[in-house]
Design a protein around this nucleic acid. Structure first.
Lengths: 153, 153
DNA sequence: GGGTATCTGCAACTCGGTTGCAGATACCCG
DNA sequence: CGGGTATCTGCAACCGAGTTGCAGATACCC
C-alpha cells in the first residue's frame, strides 16, 4: 500500500527515510527516530535480521535493547514487518514487502542461522486435516549459505 | 524399574519399549530408562513435542530438566530425533521416522505453537543462489489447528 | 558380581526476550 | 511558535529456555 509518492526524491537517503516515516504515520504512530531507522534498515536488508544484527547495524547511535525490542514488536503488530524464529531459536525480522503474498520461500542456513528471502515460485496449495485454518504457506530450504559452505566446517 | 524381560515382543507396550532400547543400543549408547522413555514417547507422539510437554508427559517420574535436555540433544545428534524451533522460539522434538525423507511438510499453529507432521506430497525442487548447498526441504503451513481455531481467540 | 566409562542430578550460569516505571518527546492545538 | 499530553524511550530488574561443571550413581563388559 503505497500511494504514489509524494516528494520526488531528493537525496536517495532522505527519500527512503521519508518513506519509512510515512509508513509509520500511516500505521497510526509517531514517527520517532528509533522506528524510522529500524524500518529503513529492515527495508534495505537483503536477509531477515536478528535483534543483535540490527543493534550492530545501527552502530554507535544504537537504541536501548528494550526499545529495539519494542520497536520490532510494534512493526510486527502493525504488519510492517514479519518475525520468524530461526534454526537457533532467535527471532529474525524482515520488512513486509508491498508485493506481499501469503506464500514465501526462505533459505535457512544451518551454519550461521541467517535467513534469505528467495523469490522462488509459490508452492502448490495443500490439503489439511479437518478443522485446520491455513493463513500462510512457507517453503523452507535448509542447508548452508555460500559463505558457510565455503569455510570449512 | 522396568523389570526385565520379555524379549520378542509380547505386550505391545513392552514391545515398543524394547524397540526403543534396541535403537538406542544400536546407536552405540546405554539404554538407560531416561533415554528409553523419552524415545518411546517421541515415537508415539502425533506432533513434535516441546521440552516442557515431554516433562509433563513423563508425569511423576519426570527426569531432571537437564537430563532431559541432554537426552534430547543426544537423540538429535544420533539422528534418532529431529529438532525444530517453533513460532514461539522454543525447540520441538520429534522422532525420526524410518521412512525418513529430506522433504517434510509441517503445520505450525500460531495459536498454541504446536507442530503437526503431515504426509503431504513433497514440494518441487527449487533453484538456489550461487554457492548455496541444500540439505533439506520443508514445506511449512501456518495457521490455526482445529483446537485453536475452535476456541475463540 | 566387580570395575569403569557413561549417565544422572544438582547448582549455578548465559542469553534472548519481557515488564514496570520514571523521565523525555513527537505531535496536536491554540 | 510555544504548551500540554499521550506516546515513546531508557533503565533496572525479571523470566524462561537452554547450557556447563562436577560429584555421585549405574548400565554394561568382563
Amino acid at each position: 500500500m503505497k500511494p504514489a509518492l509524494i516528494r520526488n526524491g531528493e537525496q536517495p537517503g532522505e527519500s527512503e527515510t521519508e518513506r519509512a516515516a510515512r509508513l509509520i504515520r500511516c500505521a497510526g504512530a509517531r514517527a520517532t527516530p528509533a522506528r524510522v531507522r529500524v524500518l529503513r534498515l529492515l527495508r534495505s536488508a537483503p536477509t531477515a535480521l536478528s535483534h543483535h544484527e540490527i543493534e550492530q547495524s545501527l552502530g554507535d547511535l544504537a537504541l536501548d535493547r528494550v526499545t529495539l525490542y519494542r520497536v520490532l514488536d510494534w512493526l510486527v503488530a502493525t504488519g510492517l514487518a514479519h518475525r520468524n524464529a530461526d534454526t537457533r531459536r532467535t527471532f529474525r525480522f524482515s520488512a513486509a514487502s508491498s508485493s506481499e503474498h501469503s506464500a514465501h520461500t526462505h533459505f535457512r542456513c544451518d551454519g550461521c542461522g541467517r535467513v534469505f528471502c528467495l523469490d522462488a515460485a509459490p508452492p502448490p496449495p495443500p490439503k489439511l486435516p479437518e478443522g485446520f485454518l491455513l493463513s500462510r504457506i512457507e517453503l523452507d530450504l535448509r542447508g548452508r549459505c555460500a559463505q558457510c559452505a565455503g569455510s570449512a566446517q
